[in-house]
Amino acid sequence: MSGTPEVAELYSTIEESARQLDVPCSRDRVWPILSAYGDAFAHAEAVVAFRVATALRHAGELDCRFRTHPDDRDPYASALARGLTPRTDHPIGTLLSEVHRRCPVESHGIDFGVVGGFKKIYAAFAPDELQAATALAGIPAMPRSLAANADFFTRHGLDDRVGVLGFDYPARTVNVYFNDVPRECFEPETIRSTLRRTGMAEPSEQMLRLGAGAFGLYVTLGWDSPEIERICYAAATTDLTTLPVPVEPEIEKFVKSVPYGGGDRKFVYGVALTPKGEYYKLESHYKWKPGAVNFI
């Protein structure tokens, strides 16, 4: 599995992209992650994307995300067995298995940084089997902050629209992604109200313009506080020039440096809001297929 041509090709692409972006790339850090899930890249429905962000804490990093083919494998167990992430007594260590026991997970995703290494596992639900946030809040290992914000999700018509959960093991946080978000959630006054109620920074006009064209949003939750840590709005496009906002220089450099696998190029452009301010992220798909889950 570890020596497949698809793994070798993807590693070469990552290595060259990192060089173009002046990001250090170590084979010892990247290759074990790719080889652990190597069969994912040979599958006809393989989805692979690269991402950069403008926040200071993301500087000098190139992230890679890929979808694993639906099977019975536990991707967290694979990560532990390969030494990609340390064992932990923290609730995040059992959360994926508890989600599996209660929910019909359709597929998984893996997220890692060329510099930072293994980061996240995503559990995606089928479009016709979206989950309710209030039900997910009953999972023992789930952060209590999910239940603490149940009224917020219900008020905005989001409670029964959870499409993906993302588990960030180093950060010990959970991302909750909502599908089929009501359009009123993206109206400027609703965005302002949402951010004010959750304690986020006042949005810029650029953020509001991007939010108006967004397709979805997600929140980041942790175990140490009942508050939402971050809210992200994301827009998808095949042409960055159609976005209602200018593209930052570091993101423009990223677009020029990272290749794609042919056909229409797919981008997901997101703005993340925190209590301290906002920052932007761009995901560029190296391999994708119509109907694939979009999240950033």
Rank of each mutant, 00 (worst) to 15 (best):
T4N: 08
C185A: 07
A79C: 00
V114I: 08
G60C: 11
P249A: 00
A292R: 06
A53K: 07
V164F: 04
A292Y: 09
E15C: 15
D74L: 04
E129C: 15
L95T: 13
A40V: 04
P32M: 05
W288V: 02
A59K: 15
V268G: 09
A8V: 12
V52G: 07
D72E: 07
F167N: 01
G216P: 10
V52A: 07
H108Q: 12
A133D: 07
V30Y: 12
R172D: 02
C232E: 05
V48N: 02
V247G: 07
F178M: 03
V115F: 04
I121H: 01
G222P: 04
Y37A: 04
L80S: 00
Y280Q: 15
D151P: 05
D224I: 07
E202Q: 09
F167H: 01
L217C: 05
E61G: 13
N175R: 14
E229W: 11
P91S: 12
V255H: 01
T237C: 04
F153Q: 08
I296Y: 00
P32H: 02
V23Y: 03
R101P: 13
R183T: 12
A77H: 01
V247S: 07
L62Y: 03
A55E: 04
L80P: 00
G261W: 01
D22Y: 12
E278A: 14
L80H: 01
E278V: 13
L21A: 05
A133P: 09
E205T: 10
C103L: 15
Q20W: 10
V99N: 06
H43N: 06
E283I: 12
E6N: 12
F295W: 05
